[in-house]
Every structure is written in structure tokens, then in C-alpha cells.
Design a binder for these strands. Structure first.
Lengths: 329, 329
DNA sequence: TTGTAGGCGTTATCAA
DNA sequence: TTGATAACGCCTACAA
């Protein structure tokens, strides 16, 4: 087991004071080159690394960011956040931050966790996902001046804090446009109940695309909580009542259900899902793909900008999704 | 923004010394009850929480455990580790530990990360996944006396360190037994190339089950790297050459491919996968399910035992998987 | 440009 | 049983 290497060990070896070593680390430009090189050589030779706990005590910064990990719901949509999490961890690492995980069952408990995390570990920032109308979490963090960024727009007040999001409406619009181009007119939409920002956004794209093409969308959409069985049920209902010739869905789960419903119909009824989850790839379901890696990277960008005190021109990033076509269209 | 509450704030309010507050926190039994209650009241009233960085400086312990997050490969098998990670975070929280994430591209880089994590953040322990024969990571950690537990057996030396694993052989044996009970004799196996501990383990269960039933397994299995296309290819090959009437697969990806291969065969060829990933649930694929939440919990148990210095009777845990039957059987 | 002194919040040691 | 003192490793002021 190697002995603990502190700033003092380095100082001794380089025959300078501890302060000079600290300067080499934090303000290299004020150290004479010859001295700096000697210190850097000592650092490398000893494998010295600054102790975060000690640094944090002085600076109050931990170089740690917190992200919530969700219970996997149906396991399909959960993969979206998992992919985001991976991208986040990776990008944060290259920016010199580590990622810390926490769980929470509801907003209030999550806020209690913020409090705990902040006072025990002095986290530098939070990355929130799944924001919705009137989110109490963002209000709490903002009130305390805690840096944070959300993956997902604040639907109420778009300017209130830094966020990164993917343009869901553009995604469903592209899906709808693709079907229109293929000659379809009566294109149905299977979505979530009105009221959720994300769900409404995705419905909007379909609606707007249809209207632009001169098709009346009335009666062509259905709403249901997420799930495969739910998707199948309402898709069947939609097919029976409104006879759409193609379907756009708000999620891959819904699309999977819709796929069951359209099975064996002639002519075939194309179905397009949302999120391009592994399931979609596995079964050949066309889907709208979110650039999750880039979204994560931009979140880190925004965060480091805030943490370094530099105020960038823009702190709202809206990314464009892409349509991945497979067998089902 | 609330003022920072330190042990001194609490001490002042409770009219005791800082040391007494510390004792109430870390050794309550040596404090007179009356004093202790007064201090606890002050702690509650002020919302005091011990600062981890300061505590860590003194004790050298961070109450942090590290887990690696993998790049999602095909996104199907990746979900296994994601579910494990969720369970781990949750259980660790209840045990008073937080989870820190890191990424690594190969074993050497991962070891470099250990070094970094250990000297910068003084992590208390590591949870490793995906161990294989002659894993350099466990050797490195063991040599330095760093506490760790692996999810996955050390295939070379079963006694060398604490581990938790799921009995893969029992899983494929159960799958095979189920098919045997349904009247099948020529049951094929689609697995990974020999040499990986996990893959060989899963093949063993199928092999043993067949032999026990008096069926000669020779020629009834194929090997391929993981993947849907790969699974389809070798399953097709197997069906053509060895005419199995049912298939057991080493993963859901392979099973998904096999499902393509057996499509439209009469009589139907049942397929059973492994891992019970969301995809399996979504498309009705029967699969062997690992108790990932429990595995994670046991990992935390083992870790806390090591960290608290108590040496439990057993530090090797082998959990039993369960067979989830769906349409494909 | 380099060195010295002090303190961040906590706990271990030892004395009262 | 409680309290005073020192120390963990680092960084910021200030002095040399």
C-alpha cells in the first residue's frame, strides 16, 4: 500500500514550500518556469493527486454533480434516462466533475434529499430530469441559489433557468410528414393525457403537421397513460372508429401496443414510435430518436458555465431529434 | 439562503462543547441522557447535518462507493446493469452510503480510475460488475487492500474475495427442464463462445439438464458473440443441421434473433431467452429472470460488513434465477 | 517569486 | 461525563 502523498510530500521533494506547489496547481502562471517544472516532475513522480475533501473544505466546492436515478417503470422508457445518464457521466468526467446518484419517490422527498446532499456533501450542482408544469424542485433550488440544469423544458416559464431539451414536436412532425409524403392522409396519434408538457409537445407536432397538409385532425387522436396494453387498446379503438391508415405514437411502449392492434391489417398500417429505445431497434419499429448523448453534453456545458461564473449567451438548448425508419413504415 | 450550521452552532445552542456534540453523533452511549437530549433537540431545531468533507478528513472515510457505468452496447443487455445499478443506489442509500459513477473503456483505464478515485475522493469501496477469468482489476484492488465486492463470480478462485452472483446454470437448466417436461428432447442451445465465465456457466445448465434426461447434447449447440443478427444466423444454422424442436439462449438478444429464425416453423419451435430484459416482456419472450434487486442488496450487505470490520460467516452469495414463461413457449 | 500563518468542520487524544 | 487542543490536507492572505 503506497504512503499517502500530500502537497507537503511534493513540496519536500521539489524543495519548495507547500504554497508553491499549490500555486503550480491553481495558478501556474505566477510560478517561475524552472520551479514549476521541478514541482510538476515531483507531482508526476509521486503520483500526487489533490485531496478533494481538503480542497472542498477550503473552497466549498466538491466537483460533484448529482443526478437522480429512477425506478425502471416499464423498462422501455426507462432506457432513455439510462442512456442520458451514461452520457452525462462521461461528459462530466472530461470536465472534471464526478456524478453522484440519488433516488427519490416524489418531489417532496427529492427536495429533502437536495437539502441533505447539499449540507453533507456540498454538491456543486444538480441535473434534473422529467420536469413538469409548476415543478416544486426547480423553485426550491432556485430560491437557494443552487446551480442546476434541467433536461426538459420548464413548461411554465421558459426563461427561468438553464435547460436542455429535445424538440418533441419537431420529432412527431417529421414522423407525420414522412407518412404524408408516403401518401397517407388520415394519420392517427396515440398519446398521453393532456397536461404533461412532454406529451402535449409531441401531440402538437403531429397536429400542426396534419393541419399544414390540409388534413382535419379532429377525431384522429387518442389519449392514454403509457404502456403497451394501453397503446393496444386505444389504437384498436382508433382504428375502429376513425379508420386511420397510419399511426404516430408518443412513445415506443404505445407504439408496441399499436403494432399489436394493426397486426394483420391490409393494407398494412405503418406505426412510428418515439425515443428509439432498444426495443424499437430489436423489433424493427420506426421511431423518433433523441440525441441523448448530446443532450447530456450540453447539460454539462451549461453547468460548467454557471459554476465557472461565466454567463454564456444562451442557456436554453433545444436539440432536434431524428427519424429512424425501419420495417414498420 | 440559510446560514451554514456547523457542530459549533449546535454546541452553542445546546450549551455544550463541540466535542460533546460529536459524541452524541458518534458515540451516544457515553453522553449523559439529559445532555444528549438537549443536543439532539438542537440538532433537529437547526437542521444540522455533519459535513462529509470535514468528517472524511479526520476519519479517512467518505461513505461513498463507486460503480462503473457501461456504454450501452446493444441496449438490450445493458438494461441488466442499469437495473442492478438502481437497486444498488437504493440499498446503499438506506445503509448510509452514496453511489458515485465512473466510466472506463478497458481494464487498465479502469484501474487508473481506481487510483484517481481513491486518492482524490477516498472512496470507501468499489462494486465491480462483469468479472472474467484472471481479472486484473480485482488483483489490483486486493493488493492495495481496497474493499470491494463483485457482482459476478471470480471464475478462477472462488474464495478470493466477496462476491454475489446469480446461478446462470440453474437458470438454463430450469429452462431446459421446462422444455423437456413439455415433451421436447432435441433442445438446442445458442450461446457465447467458450471462455467467458458467464457464458460457459449458462451452457453448463443446458448441457447437464439434457444429459440428465438421457439426451445426447452433441451437435445441439452453437456459439456466437452476442447480438440479434448473430443469434438469428446461428439459430438458422442449428435448425437446418441439427433439427432441434426447441431453443434455449444465453441472452435475450440471441433469443430475439432465434425468434426470427424459427418464425413460421410448424410445429412452433419454443425459444427461451436469458435476463428477462424489457424487450422480452414487450414481445412475449420467455426468459430467465435474475433477481437483480436482491443481488444489489446483497452486494451492499457484503460491503458494509467489510467496511464495519465485522467478518460475516459467508461472503459468497449465489442467488437463484427464475423462469418467466410467456408466449414463446 | 516564494514562504508563513491561519482556518475550513470534524474527530481523537487526553486532561479536568 | 465533559471540555480543550491538535490535526487531517488544502487554499487564501499577507509578508518577505
Amino acid at each position: 500500500m503506497p504512503e499517502k502523498v500530500t502537497i507537503a510530500t511534493v513540496a519536500r521533494r521539489a524543495r519548495v514550500s507547500r504554497q508553491t506547489v499549490s500555486n503550480v496547481l491553481n495558478a501556474p502562471h505566477i510560478v517561475r518556469e524552472e520551479t514549476r517544472l521541478r514541482v510538476q516532475e515531483a507531482i508526476a513522480a509521486l503520483g500526487y493527486r489533490a485531496n478533494q475533501a481538503a480542497r472542498q473544505m477550503r473552497t466549498g466546492r466538491s466537483r460533484l454533480i448529482a443526478v437522480r436515478i429512477e425506478p425502471t417503470r416499464d423498462g422501455i422508457n426507462g432506457s432513455v434516462l439510462d442512456r442520458f445518464l451514461h452520457g452525462l457521466t462521461e461528459t462530466a468526467e472530461t470536465a472534471g466533475y464526478r456524478t453522484m446518484l440519488y433516488t427519490a419517490t416524489d418531489d417532496q422527498q427529492e427536495i429533502a434529499t437536495y437539502d441533505d446532499l447539499l449540507s453533507s456533501y456540498e454538491l456543486d450542482a444538480f441535473v434534473l430530469t422529467g420536469t413538469d408544469h409548476g415543478d416544486p424542485r426547480t423553485a426550491w433550488l432556485a430560491a437557494r441559489g443552487v446551480p442546476f440544469v434541467t433536461f426538459g423544458r420548464p413548461w411554465d416559464a421558459p426563461e427561468s433557468h438553464p435547460w436542455v431539451d429535445v424538440d418533441g414536436a419537431a420529432g412527431t412532425a417529421a414522423a407525420t410528414a414522412h407518412l404524408l409524403a408516403a401518401g397517407h392522409r388520415r394519420i392517427g396519434f396515440v398519446g398521453w393525457p393532456a397536461g404533461s408538457g412532454v406529451g402535449d409537445d409531441r401531440r402538437t407536432g403531429w397536429h400542426r403537421s396534419l393541419v399544414a397538409a390540409g388534413v382535419d385532425p379532429v377525431g384522429l387522436d387518442r389519449q392514454t397513460p403509457d404502456g403497451i396494453a394501453e397503446g393496444e387498446r386505444v389504437a384498436r379503438e382508433l382504428l375502429d372508429r376513425a379508420t386511420p391508415t397510419a399511426l404516430v405514437c408518443a412513445s415506443d411502449s404505445l407504439a408496441l401496443g399499436a403494432l399489436q392492434a394493426v397486426r394483420a391489417r391490409t393494407p398494412a398500417v405503418p406505426v412510428i414510435g418515439f425515443d428509439d429505445t432498444p426495443v424499437a431497434g430489436a423489433i424493427g419499429l420506426s421511431s423518433v430518436s433523441q440525441p441523448l448523448g448530446e443532450a447530456a453534453a450540453r447539460c454539462v456545458d451549461l453547468l460548467t458555465a454557471v459554476l465557472d461564473g461565466s454567463h454564456p449567451a444562451t442557456d436554453h438548448v433545444l436539440l432536434q431529434p431524428s427519424l429512424v425508419l425501419r420495417h414498420t413504415t
